[in-house]
Measured scan of single mutants.
Amino acid sequence: IRLYEREDYRGQMIEFTEDCSCLQDRFRFNEIHSLNVLEGSWVLYELSNYRGRQYLLMPGDYRRYQDWGATNARVGSLRRV
């Protein structure tokens, strides 16, 4: 999964292949505005340590956080399923 700091895949990008319990420890931002799921399925959590609202993401492109059903861009952790 590739996470981007801004909409439309702009700004700083980070790629994950494994679970991350605290996004801010690995990426200086806690807001993700766009992403690409390259393979497999992922769950994004609004808070760190896999807490808060959850969003199940299938392979595909998500140009804005609204595309995955979120009401804001906050992402605290993520897990591959």
Rank of each mutant, 00 (worst) to 15 (best):
L44Y: 06
A70N: 14
L23A: 13
L56F: 14
V43Y: 02
D8Q: 14
N72W: 15
S48M: 03
S21I: 10
F29T: 04
R63W: 11
D19C: 06
I14V: 09
S77K: 01
C22T: 12
E7G: 05
L35C: 11
E5N: 05
Q24Y: 07
G40N: 02
D25F: 07
A70Q: 08
Y65N: 14
W42Q: 00
L35T: 08
N30A: 11
E7D: 12
V37P: 15
Y62S: 10
R6Y: 05
F16N: 14
L47M: 03
R10Q: 06
W42F: 05
L38C: 05
G40S: 08
E31G: 11
R6I: 07
E15N: 15
D61H: 02
L56N: 11
W68P: 06
D25E: 13
G11Q: 01
H33V: 11
E18I: 06
R64H: 03
Y4H: 15
D8M: 09
G60F: 03
D67Y: 04
M13Q: 04
F16E: 08
D61N: 09
S21Y: 13
R79P: 00
D61E: 12
W68G: 04
I32H: 01
Q12Y: 10
R53I: 03
Q12S: 09
A70E: 15
T71R: 13
W68L: 15
Q66V: 07
N72F: 14
R53S: 12
M58I: 07
Q24S: 09
I14R: 12
R63N: 06
L47Y: 03
P59V: 05
G52N: 01
S34T: 00
R74G: 09
L47T: 04
E46Q: 09
E46T: 07
T71F: 07
E18N: 14
Q24C: 08
R53D: 14
L56I: 14
Y45A: 02
E5D: 09
Q54C: 03
Q54Y: 04
A70H: 12
Q54W: 01
G76H: 14
R28L: 07
R53M: 07
G11K: 02
I32W: 13
R26M: 09
R28T: 09
D8L: 11
T17L: 09
N36I: 07
R53T: 10
M13G: 10
E46A: 06
R51W: 01
A70R: 14
W68N: 04
N72M: 14
D19L: 03
N72H: 06
A73L: 13
C20T: 10
G76P: 00
G76E: 10
W68K: 15
D25Y: 03
W68A: 12
S48P: 14
Q24W: 06
R28V: 15
N49R: 05
F16M: 04
L78A: 10
L56V: 08
S41D: 09
I1W: 00
R10V: 09
F16V: 11
M13A: 13
L44P: 00
L56R: 13
D19P: 09
D19R: 04
R26Q: 11
Y62P: 00
C22H: 06
S77N: 00
G76R: 11
V43M: 13
R63Q: 13
Q54F: 04
Q12A: 07
V43T: 05
L47K: 02
E5M: 12
